[in-house]
Every structure is written in C-alpha cells, then in structure tokens.
Design a protein around this nucleic acid. Sequence first.
DNA 1: GGCGAAACTAGAACACAATTTCATATCTCA
DNA 2: TGAGATATGAAATTGTGTTCTAGTTTCGCC
Lengths: 216, 216
Amino acid sequence: MLPNTSAPLSVEVMTGGQLARRERLTRAVVDLVAESGADSFQMKDVADRSGVALGTAYRYFASKDHLLAVAMSEWQRRLTDRVIADFDRRGVPAVPVVERVLDYTNREIRGFQRHAHFAGLMVRIYTSTDPFASEAMREISRNNSAVMERLLADVPDRPRAIARNAVESVLMHALTTWVTDRCTIADVFERVTATVQYVLAPERLAAATGAGTTTG
Amino acid sequence: MLPNTSAPLSVEVMTGGQLARRERLTRAVVDLVAESGADSFQMKDVADRSGVALGTAYRYFASKDHLLAVAMSEWQRRLTDRVIADFDRRGVPAVPVVERVLDYTNREIRGFQRHAHFAGLMVRIYTSTDPFASEAMREISRNNSAVMERLLADVPDRPRAIARNAVESVLMHALTTWVTDRCTIADVFERVTATVQYVLAPERLAAATGAGTTTG
DNA sequence: GGCGAAACTAGAACACAATTTCATATCTCA
DNA sequence: TGAGATATGAAATTGTGTTCTAGTTTCGCC
C-alpha cells in the first residue's frame, strides 16, 4: 500500500477486473465530456459515474489531464476507425488525393463541430504539459498521421511528409483558433480546404518530387 | 469602491499614473516569466515585484491569463519590431521571398529557443479561453500576420493568404509540439523550413496565381 | 485649504478542485 | 482459509487564483 508516488498501473499487467475498471473510468469520462465538457465535472464525478473510488482512479491515471487525454484518444480513434473502414470498403484509387484528404479533414471538422466539447478537450490536451497526457497525445498524433499516410500513399515521399505536416498543422491551428473564439467554424473549413488544395495540387506534387534545396 | 464585477480599466481612459502602474505590472510579469516561467510565480509575486497592490492589479487585468497574455504580446512585439527595423534598413526586394520568410521564422524560433519560458507562455495563451487573454492573442496574431504580409508583399493574393496561414500554422504547431516535449527544437526548424520552401517555391506560386477549383 | 469620491494599499479571507490519506472492507490465489 | 494486495468511501490537505475589508492616499473642485 505504498502512497501514490509511482507511475500509474500499466495496462499490460492488469487483471481482467482491472481492465474493466479502467474501461469504466474512460467511458465515464467520455460521457461526461460529451455531456458538458471537461471543465464542468470534477474527479469526484468521474468516480461516482464510473463506480470506481476516487483514490483508485488515481492508481490508474496520474492526473485528470492524463485521464482526459486517454478519453480523447479513445473518442478520436472511433472517428478514424470509421474513416478507415469506409476507405477500405470503397477501395483505394477511386478518387484523386485532394478529394480523399478533403473527405477526411471535413469529416474530422464536422465531428468536432457536432461535439464541440471534444474540440475543447482536444485543444486542452494538445497543450498539456503533463507527461502522461503528452504521451497520450503522441498516440493521438500517431493515429492521425497513420490515416493521413494511408490517404497519401501514392504521393512521393518528400512532398508527402511536408504536405501531411502542413495539413495537420493547419487543422490543429484552425481548430484552436475556433475553440478560443477567434474564428468561425466556416473559417476552419475554408482554411483547411484551401490548404489541402494548394499543397496537394497535382502539378505542385509533380514539381516537388525531385526538388531538394539544401535545408541548412 | 464597487466590487470587481466589471471589465478591467481601459487603457484609453487611464491617467498618467495609471498607465505607469499598468506598465509596472506588465514589466514585472515579463521579468518573472523570463526568469522562471509563468507557472512558477503567483499573482502575489507580481504584486510584490511591481509594487502594485494585488487587489489593484485586478482592476487592470481581469485574470492572471489576461495579464500573461498582455505580457506575451509585449515581448513578442519587441521581436517583430526588430525584424521590421532590419527589414526597413536593408530595403525590400534584395532577397527572394523564401529567404526573407525563412529569415523571419528562424529568428522567431531562435527567440523562443533562447527564452523557452516564453515559448511555454505562448502555448498557454494560444489556447486560453479567457476572453481577455483571447483578445490579447488576437492582437499577437494580427501583429504577426502584419509582418508576414510585409514579407509576402510581392506574392499574388490567392497563394499569399494560403501560404501565410500555412506557415503560421506550422510554426505554432511545431512550437506547441516542442513545448509539450513531443519533438526536438531541430524538428521545429526543419519542419518550418521545409514548409516555407515548399509553399513559397517560385514555380508553385506562379502555378497558383489563377487556380480556382471551386471550394464548396 | 478642506470636502468627498474614487483609487490605492496591505493582507486576510474565500472558493474550489485536484490530489492524498487512511481506516475498513473485499478480493485473490496458494 | 488466511495473508497480502487492492478497492472503497469519506474526510483531510493543498495550492493558488480571486475577492473582500478597513484604513490611507490622491485629486479635482469649490
């Protein structure tokens, strides 16, 4: 019964009951966030809702931010899973890259628009300095990038990495700006769309393939 | 002596002494942030350091975030002012766009690298939902965009707006990722550089000038 | 040169949640 | 079945932004 000085229980080592408890925690958080946002509930509420004691919750997650980040990760995976599923169903090369990517970014933006509390949460986690939250954010990014890499599979290496980063950046930036009430949701759609079209326009991709100005 | 229910004193209406007091507050905050970051001091410390009573500070700024945001804005303006000054000295068209912009972004990144506490602060303010902090952030963005607009003056409208947004986004995204310990400072330089070169490459700019695939 | 209102000061008091603690109950499995 | 690890529930702790109080200063104005 050491005090809670150590890292949270790692998922690998958990018994079935513990995994279930962990699951109940994250599910409760996802629900609470969906209902009214991450600021509107306390850890106590999470405990009540999940049926896991408050002290116990802290054996599973190092902080509220950590828990929130994992919940965010969960929610986001649901979204990308759907995108991937649709993508697999349709088959790959039917549509040009620009449209494929736009389809994805628009879905993501619509998702955040419909569930604005998750947009707020995303921004919060995006900039959390809690190391465990940060780790969960890495996971989210990886997942996101994986989807993009799939959509960009037939784009040459060099422009692909740049374009992917640019699109992801613009998306996050626009989202942040929207969440903090510095632009409208229409602006978000517009900026992302324009960027995707600009950065992935066929003639530009072709031009970039061999380009290699030294980077310094 | 009404309670502090109302908006903070507006700068326009202040007497000389009040402006001085406000100045002492922001200066104290800039110093404190420079020394050890925004999380390491309390409002009480700001009061002590500035010689302004705590309660009075709250007549000038609605919240700690508000005060921090204004301090950030101040610090950032110093940086951009220097850039603009150098730019004016050299005259405009001497260097190609890509190099002009890279010069600017690299300076900015180096500034944040040298004063990492301000990078942390920027990220904090960037996502603050406090309306007054948000307002100050708008100011920062405007200032930044103004610099970029100057550097991009000879780029045609349509690609200019897109490129500017892309560069700003990638810069903020990379900075955020660095601050939250999800990439190295070298990555930041690299990503921004690659983006600038890609997005502002002369042949691409030319190609984009007339392009207008419908957006809806 | 004194009045009154508004602004300032010092510092105590408050609010509010995250986090920790602990005594007790409950599992788990040899 | 019993020892040790885990979980529970509720209360205690903590840190800090923000507000409040009571006394003091400032300043325009008659």
